[in-house]
Amino acid sequence: MNSYTDKIKEISKRLLKEDKVDMVVGYRKGSVPLMHQPYIAQNEAEVDAFVWDSSCGLNLANYITDRTERIGILATGCNSRNIAVHLVEGKIKREQLYIIGIPCKAMVDRHKLAAMADGDITSVEEDEEKGTITIKGENFSETVNKADVLQENCSLCMHRNPVIYDELAAEEVPEQSTDEIDPYARVKEIEAMDPDEKWNHFDDLLSDCIRCYACRNACPLCYCPLCFVDESNPQWVGKSMDATDVRTFHFLRAYHCAGRCTDCGACVRACPVGINVRDFTKKLEKDCLELFGWEAGLSAEQRPPLDTYSPKDPEDFIK
């Protein structure tokens, strides 16, 4: 995907030169391999730091919340949907934004690659034509097919092309269809379990959680000035590593994302211990689709189902 980099730089420089925007939000090379950092370029010289490849997994919509400047922003499918969510929720105005649409060719899963590596990964090379990723470390070098190490949410993604943009950086990529893959296969697997199995499944899933709140911080939806985990009167959730507290945190965090989550996978990518937090959010996404026919961030005008009322809203859970 490195071919995008030049085009992105070119557009960004032009925007800054013509004074259309005050800053451009993109990615630069991260301090660790496979994790590119979000980077805000405020002049043409800074644009040179921009990169684009398969490690740009964090969500840039996180950096435009409540900003007052004019911002140019790179947006893949999921990023653009999160921008749309921001627009609907009034966190930024459309006039402030110049959205550089990027037809996304999916990101790789750093946890999967780290598991393959025999030691620390020190460098990563991507061959765009062959579709392979080569990871190198002190004593090893391994080449894998990119398709085998995609982030799970990317391999199940139905909206690779941005939904709103001012300019595209490349030709649109073909979308996947539900005929080929079932995005909710994993949710269905969990749904089929009985209550105790489910309980244990999530117990296992969360057993590694260290409550660092990286998932919350990486999430563009989590912009409350005071998060419920930090509230102390009343205290909704304890701050310890107690299994009940951990579960309460994850449950409420997921619930706050109901009808807003675009399954961008930033939470999973940010997680230092590799918990698949999406086991919670994907279920809500599925419910929203089934109950309200709603997919988050596809429109910047329509209000989400949980803040509107319609007589048609499902009510069979009410006695």
Binding site: F228, P234, W236, V237, T244, T248, F251, L252, Y255
Partner: peptide
């Protein structure tokens, strides 16, 4: 709020 329900169960 879902918080109330969880607080109760907790």
């Amino acid at each position: 709020s879902p918080k109330f329900i969880l607080a109760g169960l907790r």
